[in-house]
Write a protein that binds this DNA or RNA. Structure first.
Lengths: 209, 209, 209, 209
DNA sequence: CATGAATGAGGTTTCATTCAT
DNA sequence: AATGAATGAAACCTCATTCAT
């Protein structure tokens, strides 16, 4: 990995190449969809020749997978850390986590990734499964545990925790889709953080005994 | 389905054909995605030759548009009728409408259509716009008006009604995507109606003053 | 198969198409080798578009296989029939069969096929195996049986029959290769039938006690 | 093979490299055919980088030519020496020479070279011509002269000497092809030296008056 | 002498679409 | 109304070859 990110060579650090390709690819996949994106386009946007991409990735599919992996990985730990470090009312933590998600919907390419997965999961189940395993199956139990803790501590009414999680999170999915699907069509922009904030209120009040 | 083996009358209601094509197309679009579906597949499933489809539709895109139109149209009126005919507490009506949506998520192909729109909207903005105009832009104001009514009548706290609508509806979108994207990957099936029911509780309580 | 080789339609009988393609392909495979032959060339020579070939064959490889099958099949029966119908001295029959082989080396595309198999068998073992199973493994035992019969009847000395068969047949292989490999390079043409005739003499005399 | 891990002297006989490349190339050409062999494979097997090959050879074709030249050259002199030094019956010498050829079929890579030439001669006539000029056109007249000598000396019947040579030699070609084409497909291994021995008997007896 | 990085040119294959019957 | 046959355009991918270091 540390191949030679050495001196200030005129040569673009080759280690940056894969990342550049992924960035170009994500732009295009998000804009035109996976199938409609030609490898040549990706190459052009990354400033390379078509063939050069194949030095770094086996396949068009491999690029897609890498895009998803690259964008998604590592952030969940952050959320988990927040959860673990937390003292006090569960409700506050839930709100915090929801705001964190909202932040990622606004400040990262997560919405594009989500749309990509929805669109391509049938044709490329690996990426759907990757997201399911690494994001959803990590995130849902985290939230679910918190809600159960809230119930156990008397902070919340007894509800079906698994469903409650979906109630809590769903607007973030909607936000991703609104932003990537409907806003480009001219729909009124959605204030995702305001949505998250008010939604947290709503659901937390709804959960209180 | 009833393949009349050309036994009796050669006479089939002539306009059954387009519908058969649309049905075949929706099956395949849902299963494999739009791009991955070949006209030949649609034809085969509809029991026609590839060329015959072009007697009824200009284009592959035209088929997609027709599929969306055909599946989506006319159902909104039902919801609107429910809303107009309603007396009494807004909360009850909201719950009713949400359960109605849940019913459609379970009992119609709406989830497939939603996924299709998410996937293909960039490449085929017409279908995205069609859904935006005919479903979303019809449905959201309907809900929004109800919530405002609830606020005005003192039944609800003052909240941002436009956001509240999204809070209310988002789980139905999530349901559509869960069902079409993640269940095929082996995720635990989601009880959509239970989700709708508990979510209605949560949000309505959350809205109460 | 009997699709409609009917009336004298202006339409080239479509059933002829595959054969036309195979003929074009064999010409080109023989001339330039399998890999160097582009599907486009085959198409052009067959008077079709590149894509049309794929209506009849799955693959470039499938074309190769079909070429070999088509050219090879059915001729062995002829030889076998000769063998079965024969009365009298084995030597005469051997000579007859060798002359028959020589005839095929001169009057059919068998030499091209043999060269093709030698050249492509590693990359496409199916065709090598096909030839091995259908020609070699049919032909060798036939000859071998005859030689054994000759030995048993006292017409020949006791020799290793399996090797003797190769002694007898080898010049026909050499003829195929001479004609396809060396003659195009300017080597003196080989009179295959004369070779077969003199070789039959030589070997038969050599076999006599 | 002896990968001198750059431990001791950086000094390797500088001209060992080309030979290593040729050896790697022959292995691969024989195994996968010329076209299917990638320069990268050759490089890997020779323990070099792809680009390094171009320090020694102009072209992929140049590698092929060199492989053929390298493997073929110089052996014919041996045969010629045997012929010149010989006294006594021609038949004995013919047998000796045939056994010598058989030895090379078993103990050298000649069969691979022959197959290579058959396969690639059309696309690379230079190598075909090289073999024709240097092996065939040297070898055939040698044998032919001997047979003529035998005829003149009354040892053999009068036959067409040019054809008789082919009768004599053909099984060695067959052996090469059997070994390289059919044995890898599972055909029964051929005892080349036994074949040569019995074939010499057969033909020599056949030649006797 | 050696290489990692890059590319241009080319071939196979797929598919929406058309047309003559 | 229907189809079998055909095609043009395009996309993915491979690989021999080059070049700067």
């Amino acid at each position: 990995v540390t191949k030679r990110s050495s001196a200030g060579g005129r040569q673009r650090r080759p280690d940056a190449r894969p990342t550049e390709i992924l960035s170009a690819a994500l732009d295009l996949f998000a804009e035109k969809g996976f199938t409609a994106t030609r490898m040549e386009d990706v190459a052009a946007r990354a400033g390379l020749s078509k063939a050069a991409i194949y030095l770094y990735f086996d396949d068009k599919t491999a690029v897609l997978e890498a895009v998803v992996r690259h964008t998604v990985l590592g952030r969940l730990d952050e959320a988990r850390a927040m959860a673990e470090g937390h003292q006090g009312r569960v409700a506050d933590l839930l709100r915090l986590l929801l705001m964190f998600m909202a932040g990622r919907m606004v400040g990262s390419r997560l919405p594009d990734i989500i749309k990509l997965i929805v669109a391509e999961s049938r044709a490329h189940p690996e990426i759907g499964r990757f997201y399911l395993d690494n994001v959803i199956m990590q995130g849902l139990p985290l939230f679910e545990g918190l809600i159960r803790r809230g119930i156990a501590g008397g902070e919340f009414r007894p509800v079906d925790a698994a469903l409650a999680v979906k109630s809590l999170i769903a607007p973030m999915l909607m936000a991703a889709i609104w932003r990537t699907v409907f806003e480009p069509l001219g729909a009124t922009p959605l204030d995702i953080e305001a949505l998250a904030s008010q939604h947290a209120d709503l659901v937390i009040r709804g959960l209180e005994p």
